[in-house]
Design a protein around this nucleic acid. Structure first.
Length: 279
DNA sequence: AAAGAACTCAACCGCCTCCCG
DNA sequence: ACGGGAGGCGGTTGAGTTCTT
């Protein structure tokens, strides 16, 4: 006997979500908060698996999502985090406000991986490719390079990779030139700086609160499992309708520009907004 | 202009972890 | 201490889109 399916497969719809389904899910979550995903489809009137609902909400419908391509700053942060955390996408996403693990995972696989390979860096180990391919050369290289052993088997510091990425993105360097730079040991293998707030933040325990500004917090109802009582919420029908409109239009239309914490976030939004308008 | 290749990303699958009885 | 259920996570898939020839 195999494992029981997470939901009754019979009558469960799959594939892309329709606007109607989205509406139902948003309506339900905003009314009841995020609780017991298994029960959500039934209560919300959806013929979907609970998992599917959770995924749709967290990856697409959440009003605090940024959307759009990752900015250069975000990309660097992802690389930094990946160097230390590995493929723990949810942990990485937790430190990028408005980004989902799925989005970061996709971006890593489609963009960053290629960039790193082009730069001659192994996206898995974050070490120079020639070194990874030829372990015999390792000792030789170590004679000339400062290799720092840090947690998660990372020997090339994230800062070094980020710096390389920046160089590669600003110049139109070919693969061969990148390889050359790698061969010439241009990677700066600097030591771990304990005073670096970012790195300290990254190395802190998993309990550390994410770097999320309070302005990104969801103003939705939270659910008290013990008492089955709903906490008070700032969402009313008017707010909900506004959110639905936001899904269809854009934050500019609602004077929400000042919700962005910095210029980088605003830039991300503007880029996406312009792209959407051009469609 | 059309066909095929390459790319992107939303969504699914199945395993793992945590929590509760 | 143990077992079962639910949520969470990471890997993978495949449909839709864009690019190239």
């Amino acid at each position: 006997m195999g494992r029981q399916p997470c939901c009754d497969k019979l009558g469960v719809k799959k594939g892309p979500w329709t606007a109607e389904e989205d509406k139902k899910l948003i309506n339900f979550i905003l009314t009841n908060g995020q609780c017991c995903w298994r029960a959500v489809p039934k209560l919300a009137g959806l013929r979907r698996c609970g998992k599917s609902c959770r995924l749709r909400w967290t990856n697409y419908l959440r009003p605090d999502l940024k959307r759009g391509l990752l900015s250069e700053a975000e990309e660097k942060l992802v690389i930094d985090l990946h160097a230390r955390l590995g493929n723990r996408w949810s942990k990485i996403a937790a430190r990028l406000p408005g980004r989902t693990d799925n989005e970061i995972k996709n971006h890593w696989n489609t963009h960053i991986k290629k960039k790193l390979l082009k730069m001659g860096i192994d996206p898995v180990t974050h070490e120079p490719l020639n070194k990874a391919e030829n372990p015999a050369d390792q000792n030789k290289n170590n004679d000339h390079q400062l290799v720092v052993v840090v947690p998660e088997s990372t020997s090339v510091t994230a800062a070094a990779i980020s710096s390389e990425l920046e160089n590669s993105s600003t110049s139109s360097s070919s693969a061969s030139s990148s390889e050359n730079s790698c061969n010439e040991s241009k990677l700066v293998l600097d030591t771990f700086n304990e005073n670096d707030p970012l790195l300290n933040s990254l190395l802190e325990s998993d309990d550390t609160p994410p770097l999320i500004d309070s302005s990104w917090e969801l103003p939705i109802k939270s659910f008290d499992n013990n008492s089955n009582n709903h906490m008070t919420s700032s969402w009313d029908d008017e707010s909900f309708n506004w959110l639905l409109d936001c899904q269809d239009f854009g934050i500019h239309d609602f004077g929400f520009d000042n919700c962005f914490n910095n210029d980088v976030e605003l830039e991300v939004f503007n880029t996406k907004y312009d792209m959407e308008n051009k469609k």
